[in-house]
């Protein structure tokens, strides 16, 4: 899957070819290639240390690849960072707001960073956080914090949202809330790159999924092609053993 050149798709918004990145002697990403189509929800799964986060960091311009070509919406993330940052919204694993900032203040502040942002109050409504509008971030539950962090990724009206461990630490209700939020955003035309450990999340949300193992793409297909419904985890373990 990772070998050979990728046929250029007309509607692709992300193209990665032969991405390679090492930290000192450690090869984080060996050779990763894939394309993501417009309006697709594209999943990335893999064991810890497989190279998922590094891949995502390279495509958002946070890290510069050692080799390979990345094209995001016609821009090179390594050299055209500003163009990428206004068009790609990123949600990171860790909570990243001061405890004493309120939900509305946080979204309002991040809105000021972008040329054409969403209205913070509309987004708060969409995130189902209206009743927590003026609550301090530090007082929110895990699910509420997660929704705020998804909100920060969407406030700049991005074409692409990169979501890393979207529902880690959430209870089943909160997970379903976040999932239906993502589905609604897809209906509005958003493209999503979703890094996750949850197979049910992949089966529910993703149009296609890439299994990354030891810095390479081990498999890339629709979840239903990779495994019968409910059996993706078995297929994943098989693909990523030895």
């Amino acid at each position: 899957m990772s070998q050979g050149s990728i046929p250029r798709r007309l509607d692709s918004v992300i193209e990665i070819e032969h991405l390679h990145k090492r930290y000192g002697d450690v090869v984080a990403v060996d050779d990763v290639s894939f394309t993501v189509a417009a309006n697709e929800i594209f999943g990335i799964i893999g064991v810890n240390g497989a190279g998922k986060t590094t891949t995502v960091e390279c495509l958002t311009g946070v890290r510069t690849p050692d080799r390979g070509r990345i094209d995001v919406l016609g821009f090179d993330p390594a050299t055209q960072r500003d163009a990428i940052r206004t068009r790609v919204g990123v949600q990171l694993q860790a909570s990243a707001l001061p405890d004493r900032l309120s939900v509305h203040e946080a979204l309002d502040l991040y809105a000021s960073f972008y040329p054409d942002p969403r209205d913070p109050d509309e987004l708060i409504e969409l995130l189902n956080l209206s009743h927590r509008r003026d609550a301090r971030y530090g007082k929110l539950s895990g699910g509420e914090k997660q929704r705020v962090s998804v909100g920060l990724a969407l406030i700049g009206k991005p074409r692409i949202a990169v979501l890393d461990e979207l529902t880690t630490g959430l209870d089943p209700h909160a997970r379903r809330d976040v999932w239906s939020l993502i589905e609604r955003l897809k209906d509005d035309g958003l493209t999503v790159v979703l890094v996750t450990h949850f197979m049910d999340e992949v089966e529910r949300l993703c149009d296609r999924v890439a299994v990354i193992h030891a810095g390479r793409v081990k498999a890339l297909d629709t979840p239903t092609t990779l495994a019968r419904p409910g059996h993706l985890e078995d297929a994943f373990v098989e693909l990523t053993t030895a």
Partner: peptide
């Protein structure tokens, strides 16, 4: 130091600011 530890600086580096 608090902002760095909480990942706020990292978070900001993915925005235009």
């Amino acid at each position: 130091a608090d902002y760095r530890m909480r990942g706020i600086l990292r978070r900001l580096s993915t925005t235009p600011v």
